[in-house]
Structures are given as C-alpha cells and as structure tokens.
Nucleic acid binder design. Structure first.
Length: 724
DNA sequence: TCCGAATTAATTTTT
DNA sequence: TTAATTCGGA
C-alpha cells in the first residue's frame, strides 16, 4: 500500500479524492509535483487503475522526465507504463499512431520556429509579397495564435485588404506544410483537437484509451490545449488539473489563466483544493512575495504560509549603475563563498537577456564559474541543424525546407540561380522540390553544369535514403551520413577557429543517436528526430559548481538557497517598452513574474537596482521598481540611499551600511553618484527637452536644478530626468 | 560567391 | 549599444 504519511492533510485530500473533475491550486513550493505523482500512484495502488490508462501531461520535457522518474520510484516497474509527456510529445504520438485516417503520414516532420519562419519566407516569395509589409515574424505569430484559437485560414476575419492577404498567406502556408509532410508546433495540438472533433475513427482510437487525465501547470494552457484536455477526458471526466494562477507568466504565448480560474465554469462539479503550505522559503521571503502578489486584483485569493524559520531580512541594494550592480553580484557571491556556500547555491535573475552581459563580464573577470540557462540550444547550432536537415530529408523526401538547407552544404556548386529556378518551377506547378528535382522538363531549362550537379545531388539523396532504410544502428547511420555527405570532410578542411568545435558538435550529435539506439534498440530515425525537435535548452543538464544566471521566466519551477534579482527598476522590471502601459493585465503579469522570482529563494533574497542604466546605448535614470514599494518594510533592509519614491513607504528605514557587511563600497560615492547625476551633465526632460545640470540638491525626493535653453533654470525631481 | 557595409530593430520563448 | 540580417560590390 502506498504510504501517504509524508503528505500534509491538504495534499492527502487532493491525492485520495476519487474520480471526477478536480482542480488543485498549488502555491509556489507547496509540493505540487508530489501531489500529482502520489495521486497517480494512488490511482493505481488503491483504485486498481491500469497504469497505461493514465495520461499525465506537462509543458516541459524536464518536468515530464522528473515525473516519470518519481513514478518509477513510487511504483517500480509498473510505473513505466504510465503515459507521461509534454502536450506536444503526447499529441505527436497520437498523430503518428492514429493519423493515417485523417491524411497524415507516419513520417511527418515537425517544423520548429526556425523552419516555420523559413517556410513563411518561401510562401511570401512565391506569392510575390513584400516582406516589409507582411513580416514573416508577424505572420508566424498570427498563424500560431490562430491555431491556438483553433482557427483555420477560413476562420480568419478579413476586414481589409491586408487581413485578406494574411489569410491567403496562412492558406498557402498550410498548403506548403501539407506538401512537405510537416507539422509545426501549433499543428500538433491543433490537428489533434480537430481530429478528435471531426474524425470518428480517430476519436474511437484515442478516446477510451485513457481513463484518467492529469495536467500540470494548468495555468499555462491555451485555448487549444484546454480543448484537447477536455476532449481526452470526455466520458470518464476523470480530469485533474494542477497549477497556480499566480505563476502564470506566459500570457503572451497564449496562456489563458481563465482556464484554471474558471475551471468550474466548464466543470461545475469540480472539487477544488488549495495547497498553501510552503516548504521552500523562510517566513520573511514568503511574506514579501505574498505582499507583492496580493496587489493583483485578478487572482484566486490565497496566502502561502510556512513552518520554516523566520530567516534573514530581504536585502535591497541600490547601486550606481549596471556595472556597479554586476560588481555587487560578484561581491555577494564572494561573500557567500567565504561563508561556506557553494556557487551552485546562488542564482542571479534578470528580466531580459540583455542584462546578463555585464554580470557575465564581472564574474568572468573574477574567475567565478557561471552557467547561463536558456542560451543557444545545442540543437540550434548551424552544423547540428544541417545534419538534422539531412536526416529529415532521408526520412521525409517531401521536406523542402530541409532540402533547401542542404542542397549546397557542403558547397557542391548548386548556386542561387539554380535554386531560384527550381523554386519558381515548384511554385508554378504547385509541387514540392524533390518532385521537381528529377523532372526532365524542369531540368531542360537549366544549364549543363547545373544539371550534372543536381543529378549528383540526387544520387547522394538516393544513397542516403538507402542508408536510412538499411537497418543499421542509428549511430552508424549518423556516422555514415557525416562521411558520405562530405560534411565531415568540409569541417576538416575548414581551418577557421570554430571548425574544431563544430566538428565536436557533429560527433556529439552522432553520439546522441548512438545513445538513443542503445536505450531503445527499436527506435526509428523519425523518432530520434522528433525527440530532438521537441527538446529544449531547459532540458540540458546542469553540472559543476557554478553560479546560475537566467531570466525570471527560465527560473520558474526551480529553487535556490540564495537568489539575487537584478534590475528592479521601472521599465526594466516591471518591463515596459517605449509605449505607456495600455494594459493593466500586463502589469499584473509583471507582478506575477516578480512573485515567481521571489518565491524561488529558500534562504536569502537579495534585490538590486541601478541608479543609472545604459539601455540601447542611452543612459536612463533608474526609478525604483514599484514592486519594491510593495514589499513589507519590516522585512526589508536597505543598503544605500532610499530612493525618493520610497521615502514615504511604511516601515522602510535607511540603514547606513557598515563597512564589514556592505556589498558595495560607498566610500567614494556621494549622492550625486547615487542618483547618477552630476553637475554639468546633459539631461533630458519629457517637457523641457535637453538641459544642463546646475546643482544637485539632497532631500527627498532629491531635486536637481537644470537649465533648459528657452525655459530657464528649473528645479526638477531627479527621477523625471534621463541623461541625454 | 563571398565578404563587409548598411540597415534595422530591440521582452519574456515551456514545444 | 549591439547583434542580426540584408544588400551591394568586387
């Protein structure tokens, strides 16, 4: 029997609750994954549900892997039969297995964002449309959104000629995808839902397969995903969704918090549980996070609490500029090291990637190891993508985008002109490239040399396709491909400094094929490719004792003993572009982001802001983030000047740093520096334009005398100025 | 066919 | 500021 004694009473209730719809609001660090895994285990152990009839869906491969592992731990061998996977992987599996009746071949290729963009550019070219007017990125966003909303081209509203064209683009894009025997990410969900909706044979094959469906991070589902989940639990209605509306930070990707907030509108009889006991953070950290998130209006009310110790105050440090802030991080890390913490205990968060550079530089110059989460993915490197394109063409002859990628890589004298002619013929006849490649009429239009080279390329493709179906182990196929395609040789000839690393990446790719073959001897090439496409940087493992640097988004789901959040300034965090806020929902999402950041910390939370920050080459005065003003004063310790906008805030007191404990040496800096303003500096005011600073006056708020040509000398509150 | 100048745009990115 | 992409000339 499953031992539930390690669960608290709330968790236990959610675990043992019998069938029917169930929604669990699981606050940060409240043991969400434990509840899901125990619930699955309990269904099997206590209710006798067959493992293979349980479907657990997550958003990331990492989360899926973790869940699988825990289930194996709880259930042993039996756990292996449970269907655990991401939304996309789950749909891909269903479509591969049962897609034939709806016109899908088993060997379809999955196009990632880059492939999608390339395909759209080709569509625009075929339709002779201007890329300025119909930007490929915008078109991709529109199409992805449509698919999230379960809209096909025919469902797009066309109010003017522009939207009319957009619809045509969407239509042509779909045709091209079909021709290439490919699906994009959005399709995986969209097509599955459509098939469930409209194809009785598909529905019969899929529904009834599962008797229980569980969804993790439900607050991040979009419309199509919710539809999918509903369809999959039609009949049995054993749908358990777990999530936290306060941690929903992907609205801009189509996530709809209403899915969890209004779950009971769809399932009126759903049982609701809230997990509010936190096992991660100190009381002070939790109070701070609670205080901030409580400002959001649109949320399910809840308050995290903990039995953990009170803990240290939250440190807020104001530095001069972003370089000074980076030095603060460095000092912080060093100080923690000297207190016996490990580098891997520390995480540094920022709102945007652009902020990482200075911090990296500071750490690098001090020889402190760090790793950046969410940088370039292994599978995004050009050489890896090239080889993957070969593999795709081998399994899916219709994959035009991949074919275009490799047709002249390595260089085999097939130039732009030839390719353009091929593309034009293909567009004209509405056929795919590989189709055109051995068409005599098309070839007749080309020069002699081009024809010969294309023929040679065609032979290579045949050869490689034979290789793909040779039954050789995956790793051997990879190695042979590198040899026969000439790709390996190309890299060996290359004497640029990067060539070595690229060759290494190529070997690594072959090794990963080998590894899959050893783990799953019957895995096919297309399975390998699917694995790769659905893989992300977040899945790459961590190793070594290093400081972790990442965006707040990347931090969701993680925890660290010590967390430093940088850039707590208005327009940085909360982020805001040039336009004024139009949308209060956006501010609330930024606040949720802050909540996510703060609740990652177990023991210490250190927040920093810069008096002046260089953004896009322009200096900007840093106005302290409103989120700082929302912190409970008694749990916060300020180092440095209290910014004017906070001076009146309750409970905040200035603490003059004692040298021993200060992270940044303030001895040389005075108020001028703290505000980033000096006499003689050129500053810009929204109304008066550019002027020169005459005098900087202490006080709160600090005011600055500025002489503006045409306006005279004015006293201005410092935070209204930006350096010109 | 390739390299360097010019141009452009600039959050976050689970798959 | 910078990085990425595009374009033009050799």
């Amino acid at each position: 029997m499953l031992d539930l004694s390690s669960l608290n009473s709330r968790q236990r209730e959610a675990v043992v609750h019998a069938g029917g719809p169930l929604v669990v609001f699981a606050g940060a660090g409240s043991g969400k994954t434990r509840v899901i895994t125990f619930r699955v285990a309990h269904l099997i152990a206590a209710h006798g549900v067959a493992p293979w009839r349980i479907l657990a869906v997550t958003f990331t491969n990492k989360a899926a892997a973790e869940m699988r592992e825990r289930l194996l731990g709880l259930l042993g061998e039996e756990g292996a039969a449970i269907q655990v996977g991401t939304f996309h992987a789950t749909c891909a599996r269903l479509l591969r297995r049962h897609g034939e009746p709806i016109g899908l071949s088993k060997d379809f290729t999955i196009y990632d964002d880059q492939d999608q963009l390339a395909l759209l550019k080709r569509v625009l070219r075929d339709l002779r449309l201007d890329e300025k007017r119909y930007q490929p990125k915008a078109m991709a966003a529109r199409i992805n959104y449509a698919k999230q909303e379960m809209q096909g081209p025919e469902d797009l509203e066309t109010t003017d000629s522009w939207s009319e064209v957009v619809r045509r683009i969407y239509q042509a894009y779909e045709e091209r995808l079909y021709q290439a025997n490919a699906l994009d990410f959005g399709d995986l969900i969209y097509r599955t839902v459509r098939a469930l909706d409209s194809s009785p044979s598909f529905r019969d094959a899929v529904v009834g397969r599962f008797s229980h469906v569980l969804v993790d991070e439900f607050q991040d589902t979009n419309h199509a995903q919710f539809r999918l989940v509903r369809l999959l639990s039609e009949g049995h209605r054993n749908l358990c969704v777990v999530g936290d509306d306060d941690q929903s930070i992907y609205r801009w990707r189509g996530a709809d918090r209403r899915n969890i907030l209004d779950f009971r509108a769809s399932f009126p009889d759903a049982k609701l549980f809230k997990l509010e006991q936190n096992y991660r953070s100190t009381q002070r950290i939790l109070r701070a996070a609670n205080a901030v998130i409580a400002r959001n209006v649109d949320r399910e009310p809840k308050e995290l609490w903990t039995e953990n110790e009170e803990g240290d105050a939250i440190l807020v440090v104001r530095t001069m500029d972003e370089r000074d802030e980076a030095r603060l991080v460095l000092r912080g890390v060093r100080e923690l090291l000297s207190r016996g913490q490990r580098l891997s205990d520390v995480a540094v968060f920022y709102r945007t990637h652009a902020q990482s550079r200075v911090i990296e530089e500071a750490l690098r110059s001090a020889n402190i190891g760090y790793r950046i989460v969410g940088g370039m993915r292994f599978y995004d490197r050009a050489e890896v993508k090239d080889l993957l394109a070969y593999l795709r063409v081998m399994t899916n002859p219709a994959d035009d985008m991949s074919l275009l990628r490799i047709i002249n890589t390595p260089a085999r004298g097939i130039g732009k002109t030839t390719i353009v002619r091929l593309l034009d013929s293909a567009a004209l006849q509405g056929r795919g490239l590989s189709d055109i490649l051995d068409d005599h009429e098309v070839l007749a239009q080309l020069g002699n040399a081009a024809r010969k080279r294309l023929a040679a390329f065609g032979r290579l493709l045949c050869d490689l396709r034979d290789l793909a179906s040779s039954g050789l182990p995956l790793g051997d196929i990879g190695a042979e491909l590198v040899r026969r395609s000439g790709y390996g040789e190309m890299l060996q000839q290359d004497d640029t400094p990067e060539a070595d690393a690229r060759l290494q990446n190529v070997q690594e790719l072959v090794a990963s094929m080998d590894e899959l073959a050893r783990e799953h001897p019957d895995a096919s090439l297309s399975e390998f490719l699917e694995n790769v496409t659905l893989q992300t940087s977040a899945d790459e493992q961590t190793e070594g004792d290093r400081v972790t640097l990442m965006t707040v988004h990347a931090a969701k789901g993680l925890e660290f003993p010590i967390v430093m959040v940088t850039g707590l300034e208005e327009r940085v965090f909360p982020f805001k572009g040039i336009d004024p806020w139009e949308d209060p929902d956006e501010l609330e999402e930024e606040r949720r982001l802050a909540y996510v950041a703060f609740t990652r910390a177990e023991q210490r939370l250190i927040l920093s802001l810069a008096g002046v920050r260089r953004i896009f080459g322009q200096q900007r005065v840093g106005v302290p983030s409103r989120f700082l003003t929302e912190l409970p004063g008694e749990d916060v310790e300020w180092i440095g000047t209290i910014p004017p906008s906070l001076a009146g805030a309750s409970g905040i007191e200035r603490r003059v740093p004692e040298p021993a404990e200060s992270y940044v040496d303030y001895s040389e800096s005075d108020l001028d520096d703290m505000e980033g303003l000096r006499r003689g500096m050129q500053v810009r005011h929204p109304k008066f334009g550019v002027g020169e600073v005459r005098e900087v006056a202490q006080g709160s708020p600090p005011r600055v005398s500025v002489r503006f040509p045409g306006w005279g000398t004015r006293k201005i509150i410092a935070s209204y100025l930006e350096p010109a």
